[in-house]
């Protein structure tokens, strides 16, 4: 409850600016990947790559951010880092679910089935999604004293298990199918690669904007409850 100096009236500017940037980037990326990007030999369905892959990559970035924030929390024990751990894990989980849904639509369009246990990425994302869903079970049933510590430790443990999940599923896949189904092996020419990169940038900016907005909200909630506490004390 330390009173921040006057410049704290600028609090929240970052969130607003990032949100504007996210809207602009998304508009450009969607328009570009839907109308402008050249069509591939695989036909129109290939345009899903511009949406699906960035979402998947950003979910991994979010989990990475959560892991780093977890380590920082364990070192500094500052509430800010705990906020970042929770919000980042939540956003990562959201993007993981979106990646699974779009991946599933891809599978339907490509192989005619909504779910394929042979698609290593789809299966790995399922495992990762389950792990990070468990994060919230652990967090919600921890005592308030241990909550932030356990969250931080679990964020680190869960992030470590992401490459392991990929490794395990890949090993199993190569044992069953010598030739891996690889959807990113497609060759990209210049313009396609450009829109691919723009898609990643746009989705990352969306992630940062959502992160900022929710961090701001958590900060506000805490300020508010400290104000209420102060008022209750002064009323007595």
């Amino acid at each position: 409850m330390t009173d921040p100096p006057v410049e704290s009236v600028r609090v929240g500017r970052g969130a607003a600016l990032w949100s504007v940037a996210a809207a602009v980037c998304m508009a450009i990326s969607v328009a570009g990947s839907y109308w402008i990007a050249p069509e591939d030999v695989e036909g129109p369905i290939q345009r899903l790559v511009f949406l699906h892959v960035p979402i998947a990559v950003v979910s991994l970035i979010a989990f990475g951010v959560a892991c780093v924030a977890g380590l920082m929390y364990l070192r500094t024990r500052s509430q800010r880092w705990d906020d970042i751990v929770v919000v980042s894990c939540g956003l990562g989980l959201l993007f993981t679910v979106l990646a699974m849904i779009t991946g599933s639509i891809w599978a339907k369009a490509f192989w005619g089935t909504w779910w394929s246990w042979q698609d290593a990425r789809l299966v790995t994302y399922l495992i990762i999604g389950l792990i990070y869903a468990a994060f919230f079970v652990l967090r919600s049933s921890s005592d308030s004293g241990a909550q932030a510590r356990f969250s931080a430790v679990f964020a680190v443990v869960a992030f470590a298990s992401i490459p392991l999940s990929f490794w395990a599923v890949r090993t199993a896949e190569s044992a069953i199918h010598p030739v891996a189904l690889d959807r990113n092996g497609l060759q990209m020419d210049g313009p396609t690669a450009l829109w691919f990169v723009i898609g990643h940038v746009a989705m990352t900016v969306v992630f940062i904007a959502l992160l900022k907005v929710e961090l701001l909200q958590r900060q506000m909630e805490r300020r508010l409850s400290s104000i209420r506490l102060a008022l209750e004390e002064s009323a007595q």
């Binding site: 979106l98 779009t102 891809w106 369009a109 959502l210 929710e214």
Partner: peptide
């Protein structure tokens, strides 16, 4: 084919807007 792409965009936007609703 195009239906699938539109469906993906709709799902992604719907989920993001639901997220917005939670924040609201």
């Amino acid at each position: 084919m195009n239906d699938y792409i539109v469906a993906s965009f709709v799902v992604v936007w719907f989920v993001l807007l639901m997220y917005l609703a939670v924040i609201a």
